[in-house]
Amino acid sequence: MELLLQQIFNGIMFGSTYAIVALGLTLVMGILSIPNFAHGHLYMLGGYITFFFISATGLGFWLSMLLSVITLGLIGVLMERMVYRPLTDQPHINAFIAAIGALLFLEALALVVWGPQGLRIPNPYPQNIQFLGITMGLQRLLVIGGAAVLILCLHLFMKKTLMGTTIEAVAQNREGAMLNGINVNRVSAITFGISSATAAIAASFLSPIFMLSPSMGAILGMKAFIIVILGGMGSIPGAILGGYILGLIEALGGGYVSAAYKDVFAFGALIVILSFKPTGIFGKKEA
């Protein structure tokens, strides 16, 4: 029983990260139809930038995180402008190739600047809490709580602010939004910025308990991609739910069934679900 609870806790923690990262990706994929396969690598870069601010400037964890989020947001805007916008009118597969180019570039950049060794950010909250027989690291609880707050903020932003509703309008009908005088390019840039900033938040929360390495984003990026498709492209509740489901499948599958085939469960679940619902759980019928 304790083991089960512990695994559920682990699963929720995984799921929180997946949810944040997938959330950022679903915005970009749903609204801009950009298959941003480099999203996981933006997450990696976010972690390194937080590390940079902590180690080079001596700023505290929270301030460094804030700076990193801003920096990555700007990098996101830049990336949309330089890599994806010129490809707007081309087939999606070309944007996918550009994404592969971008991720190779980012990974090589991290390797050149910070080297291949794993780097650590000192854990600001190393304490542990015992509860119902399960052990919970404070930083891990922070990841879960932080994800929940972030999801709430993003929800309020999308529903209550003009910018948020504009983004949604563009997602629903790009041409229509354009006819209504919305500057679609500006919306694209802002969306990309927000998406990258959320990746930096996820990376900053996690890097004190994990380790930074240039290739850390590859698998996460792929999983986020899968979650987005699983939930339905562009669907925010889909990304959140998909993230938590994947986290739980992995923790329980890896803990109870087979650790070696852990990822097979996650990827297999996607195939099964898409076989029954070809456009994802919350997906709209594709035109």
Partner: peptide, 11 residues
């Protein structure tokens, strides 16, 4: 590829 081992370790 992984950084969190708590699921395997718990088990």
């Amino acid at each position: 590829t992984e950084t969190d081992f708590s699921s395997q370790l718990s088990a």
